[in-house]
Amino acid sequence: MIELFEFALSGNCYKVKLLLSFLNLKYESRIVNLLEKEHKTSSFLAMNPFGQIPVLKDKGILLRDSQGILVYLAQTYGGTNWFPTEPLHTAEVIAWLSTAANEVSRGPATLRAHYLLGRPINLEEAKSVTENLLSILENRLSNQNWLVTDSITIADLAIYPYIALCHQGKVDLSDYGNIRKWMLQIENMPGYITMPGLAE
């Protein structure tokens, strides 16, 4: 049985849960209490020395990092649709995974952490990164439905959560029609699940 060590408010955990649901994979949820620093205990650090969630356990292996977990699940259980093998498409998916770990993390995810959890940040930098990212996404989706191929891939799932949670970082998506259409496509897919904050 797959085990997912997670926290309900984490967009990075949510993207993994979303793929698990789309792939119709059963798993056991292991809630990690971040408020009590459970992710910094010796038992958790033995699974992920970086002390971060999510962590996935499957078939005796442990995987850290949401982007890496998406790749593993897609390649192990999803065929070539979720992680295409054509070299250009593979490279483009990896580039978007890097964007999720970089610009998405430094932009909308950081703004959300500031306004939702009170985390001190460089507010102007986070706003600037977010505005640039949204502009790039809006342009990318102006003539295609998905970020890489003509169907959804893990690139879309890697980017989606913190864009969908933008309102919690006081970012208005009203002027980004292509992004909102893209989000709606994901939300209308069979197997879609939500997370705290998305229903607001």
Rank of each mutant, 00 (worst) to 15 (best):
Glu3Pro: 00
Phe5Arg: 02
Glu6Trp: 03
Phe7Ser: 09
Ala8His: 12
Ser10Glu: 00
Asn12Lys: 11
Asn12His: 15
Cys13Arg: 00
Tyr14Gln: 09
Tyr14Leu: 08
Tyr14His: 11
Lys15Arg: 11
Val16Asn: 08
Leu20Gln: 06
Ser21His: 11
Leu23His: 05
Asn24Pro: 15
Lys26Cys: 15
Tyr27Pro: 10
Glu28Asn: 09
Lys37Asp: 00
Lys37Val: 02
Glu38Ala: 09
His39Glu: 08
Leu45Gln: 11
Met47Trp: 06
Met47Ile: 10
Asn48Ile: 11
Asn48Leu: 10
Pro49Leu: 11
Pro49Phe: 13
Ile53Gln: 04
Ile53Lys: 03
Val55Pro: 09
Leu56Gln: 09
Ile61Val: 06
Ile61Gln: 02
Leu63Glu: 05
Leu63Lys: 04
Arg64Thr: 12
Gly68Asn: 07
Leu70Pro: 00
Val71Ser: 00
Leu73Thr: 15
Ala74His: 02
Ala74Ser: 07
Thr80Gln: 12
Trp82Thr: 05
Pro87His: 05
Ala91Thr: 12
Ala91Val: 15
Ala91Pro: 08
Ala91Trp: 09
Glu92His: 15
Glu92Cys: 10
Glu92Ser: 10
Val93Met: 03
Val93Asn: 02
Ile94Ala: 05
Thr99Phe: 10
Ala100Lys: 01
Arg112Asp: 00
Arg112Met: 02
His114Thr: 03
Leu117Gln: 11
Gly118His: 06
Gly118Met: 07
Arg119Cys: 08
Pro120Val: 00
Glu131Gln: 13
Asn132Ser: 14
Leu133His: 04
Leu134Trp: 04
Leu134Cys: 04
Ser135Gly: 13
Leu137Ser: 02
Glu138Val: 10
Asn139Phe: 14
Asn139Ala: 13
Asn139Ile: 15
Asn139Ser: 12
Ser142Lys: 10
Asn143Lys: 09
Asn145Glu: 11
Asn145Gly: 12
Val148Ala: 02
Asp150Val: 08
Ser151Tyr: 07
Ile152Cys: 08
Thr153Arg: 00
Ile154Trp: 01
Ala155Asp: 04
Ile159Ala: 05
Pro161Glu: 07
Pro161Arg: 02
Ile163His: 03
Ala164Asp: 06
Leu165Val: 01
Leu165Tyr: 01
Cys166Tyr: 01
Cys166Thr: 03
Gly169Leu: 02
Leu173Trp: 03
Leu173Gln: 05
Tyr176Asn: 06
Arg180Leu: 14
Trp182Val: 05
Leu184Thr: 15
Leu184Trp: 12
Glu187His: 15
Asn188Cys: 12
Met189Pro: 13
Met189Leu: 13
Pro190Tyr: 06
Ile193Val: 15
Thr194Arg: 13
Gly197Ile: 03
Gly197Tyr: 01
